[in-house]
């Protein structure tokens, strides 16, 4: 039986692990097998995480967070959580590789998943010119003309990055102004390879085996037009990854896990949530890290109160089955 299991290894999960490990709770981090390190693994320079005045590469930042958590005794497991049972005093976490973990408390830090446009050919042409990751796939669009759909910071970051490879980058945006921060906007506006297509949404992707163009629809008058591109990068935001806890934890109207006030407390005692999965608004590495801190401190407090009340779990270690 563990004190605390942390699901997710982004800035929220690893920061929670640093705090929990320093509190000698010997946390287990279930990091995911192929997405360990979270969203920042798919970006290049992170310029707004405090403490790195020259900026730091996303994967380097995540490597450092992991090393810091492991230095104090956090154990990182490269596996994916398949299901959780959070209701009772003993929480159970089952993984895809078939292991079962038990703990007195759980911190959910599963972040968010990229949003799809939701048009028919998006899925079919994914990996054939439709992509969600500029740093992974930009290389294959050397000298090509591509489009980025989106208007936030990540869309600007991706567009600017893609000009390293592409001949021309169209940014297709539904409105006539951007959500992105001033500095990111300026960078994109001053880039000669980037051209904005305002007040349009992507309604179709053309191409038999590879993307050849897009069908756009004006948000002003509904008129349709086509845009010849060989690639489409989708950067229209993220949705909280909550499917593991559906039916167990309360969600907000925005779809994030509901927590009490500024705490990380969910509707189930001993279950805490942190990072982008509870945050419909800010969604930054630094806010996720702060949120991970809150969750670890809340878990520590909860475990201390259990110890005071007298442990309910004596004997639970002998539960049958393969218990890691």
């Amino acid at each position: 039986m563990h004190n605390v299991i942390i699901i997710g290894s982004g800035p929220a999960g690893y920061t929670a692990a640093i705090y929990a490990a320093r509190a000698e709770l010997e946390p287990i981090v279930i990091a995911s097998s192929v997405e360990a390190g979270g969203e920042l693994m798919n970006t290049t320079d992170v310029e707004n995480f405090p403490g790195f005045p020259e900026g730091i590469l996303g994967p380097d930042l995540m490597g450092k967070m992991q090393a810091q958590a492991e230095r104090f005794g956090a154990k990182v497991v490269y596996d994916d959580v398949d299901s959780v049972d959070l209701g009772g005093p003993v929480k159970t976490v089952k993984t895809m590789l078939g292991d079962t973990y038990e703990a007195r408390s759980v911190i959910i830090a599963t972040g968010s998943a990229y949003r799809k446009i939701g048009i028919p050919d998006e899925e079919r042409l994914s990996g054939r010119g439709v992509s969600w990751c500029a740093t992974c796939d930009g290389f294959f669009f050397k000298g090509k003309t591509i489009a980025v759909v989106g208007g936030g910071d990540s869309a600007m970051e991706e567009s600017t990055f893609l000009t390293r490879f592409a001949e021309k980058v169209y940014v297709v945006h539904r409105r006539d102004s951007l959500r992105a921060s001033k500095i990111m906007q300026e960078r994109a506006f001053s880039n000669p390879k980037i051209e904005f297509v305002w007040n349009n949404e992507v309604v179709g992707i053309d191409g038999e085996n590879a993307v050849t163009g897009l069908t756009l629809r004006s948000t002003l008058d509904g008129s349709e037009s086509t845009l010849d591109v060989q690639g489409l990068f989708v950067s229209i935001g993220n949705d909280p990854r909550t499917h593991l806890v559906h039916g167990q934890l309360d969600l907000t109207a925005e779809g994030t896990i509901a927590v009490e006030g500024r705490s990380s407390k969910t509707n189930i005692p001993g279950v805490f949530a942190a990072g982008d999965v509870i945050d419909p608004t800010y969604r930054q590495a630094a806010t996720a890290a702060g949120s991970g801190t809150v969750a670890a401190l809340d878990a520590e407090h909860y475990l201390a109160s259990l110890a005071e009340a007298g442990e309910p779990d004596a004997g639970a270690d002998q539960l049958a089955g393969h218990v890691a």
């Binding site: 997405e35 990996g127 054939r128 992509s131 992974c136 796939d137």
Partner: peptide, 23 residues
Amino acid sequence: TSIPAMKVFKAGEVSTSIVGAKP
């Protein structure tokens, strides 16, 4: 156009294509 891309070749032809890292 996207990696990791995993392609299974059977008798010289692509018989299965997988795109993206998976567990």
